[in-house]
Simulated scan of single mutants.
Amino acid sequence: MMEFIQEIKNRNEVLFYFGQVCLWFGVVFLLLSAISSLKIYGISAWYKPFKFAISLGVYSWTMAWYCHYLPNFNLSLFNWTVVVLWSFELIYITLQASKGQLSHYNLSTPVYTILYGLMAIAATVVTLYTAYVGFLFFKNDFPMLPTYYLWAIRLGIVLFVIFSFEGFAMGSRLNHSVGALNDNSNLWIIAWSKTVGDLRVAHFIGMHALQILPILSFYFLKDTKLTIELALIYGLLSISTLIQALQGKSFLKSFS
């Protein structure tokens, strides 16, 4: 593990250190969720910044790893776009959590409305930039990479982009639930609804194809056909959870 972490640092120090900071903040937010009484929609106000900090940290380390393979890529521009925009998102989410107020879906004042809109713009820019990285992986040849691993990266990015934009289904509704108002369960940090449809499920599953597909392909499948089949199955799983949520049905209730 230490060799892997050192390799991330060697490949991209900027995203390595930014990701590290995000992950450490995630630990702090987790501790705050245990000691703070602040709640939003029935769960700790610190769950959201925790989840975002971990997610942004993992994304940063993942892209630090992948972008290293790209020839003639403006790494500095990508790095600082990610750092600036993700920092804005995490800082605003954290400030709102510290006040026990919503960051997402908060249109209660003109200032909050503008900041919420800026978060949407920031997420859109990073997602489109990630899509451009995916385009470069399709456009260029990478003879030093196993074909199955290359396809896992390509398809992982495709699913990440699609289900990142699925977040607009929540933003347009100002609600992550279908059948209730921002319903959460007491399922520790994940907090997906146990009673109604939850659009966060597909968002989470689809976006983390960015890490899951390449890991499974590189270490276990080691086959291009199996990698593509896995990506199709994974994509169908993500779509099915989205359809289920839109029908107002709980993903978690399916297993109870």
Rank of each mutant, 00 (worst) to 15 (best):
Phe78Lys: 01
Leu230Thr: 14
Gly235Cys: 12
Pro214Met: 05
Tyr17Phe: 08
Ser164Trp: 00
Gln247Ala: 09
Ser177Cys: 02
Tyr66Ser: 12
Met119Ile: 12
Leu210Lys: 08
Ser55Leu: 01
Ala152Lys: 00
Ser37Thr: 11
Glu13Trp: 03
Tyr47Ala: 09
Tyr47Cys: 04
Ile5Ser: 06
Ser87Cys: 09
Ser250Thr: 06
Ile212His: 00
Pro146Asn: 08
Tyr149Phe: 04
Val125Ile: 09
Tyr17Asp: 12
Cys22Met: 01
Ala123Lys: 09
Asn10Gly: 13
Ala202Thr: 04
Trp46Pro: 14
Thr127Glu: 13
Val126Trp: 05
Asn74Thr: 04
Ala53Tyr: 01
Thr130Cys: 08
Tyr234His: 13
Leu90Lys: 04
Leu150Cys: 09
Asn106Ile: 06
Asn72Ile: 04
Ala97His: 03
Tyr92Glu: 03
Val83Thr: 12
Phe204Ile: 12
Phe220Gln: 01
Ser76Met: 10
Ala180Ser: 15
Thr147Phe: 06
Gly26Tyr: 08
Met2Gln: 10
Tyr219Asp: 09
Met119Gln: 14
Arg173Trp: 04
Ala45Met: 07
Leu181His: 02
Gln96Asn: 08
Ser36Met: 03
Trp80Val: 14
Glu229Lys: 10
Asn79Tyr: 14
Val196Gln: 00
Leu102Glu: 08
Leu118Arg: 00
Arg173Met: 15
Val83Trp: 08
Ala122His: 04
Ser250Glu: 03
Leu159Ile: 02
Leu85Asn: 06
Ser172Asn: 02
Phe168Ser: 10
Glu166Pro: 08
Phe4His: 03
Ile114Met: 07
Ser164Gly: 13
Ser238Ala: 15
Asn184Met: 00
Asn106Asp: 14
Tyr17Ser: 12
Val82Asn: 07
Phe73His: 06
Lys39Tyr: 12
Leu38Lys: 15
Phe52Lys: 02
Leu232Val: 13
Gly19Leu: 11
Ser256His: 11
Ile215Ser: 03
Ser240Arg: 06
Ile35Gln: 06
His208Cys: 04
Ser254Asn: 09
Phe18Ala: 03
Thr241Ser: 15
Val196Cys: 07
Lys51Gly: 10
Gly235Ile: 05
Trp151Leu: 05
Ile190Pro: 02
Phe138Val: 11
Gly179Thr: 08
Thr241Tyr: 03
Phe142Leu: 07
Ala245Leu: 06
Ala34Asp: 14
Phe204Met: 05
Tyr219Lys: 05
Ile228Gln: 10
Leu77Asn: 08
Gln211Tyr: 10
Thr147Leu: 13
Tyr234Ile: 14
Phe52Leu: 01
Phe255Thr: 00
Tyr105Glu: 13
Asn106Leu: 11
Pro110Ser: 12
Thr195Ser: 14
Arg154His: 07
Ala97Ile: 13
Leu23Thr: 06
Phe50Asn: 04
Met144Phe: 01
Ser172Gly: 14
Leu107Phe: 13
Trp65Thr: 07
Lys253Asp: 10
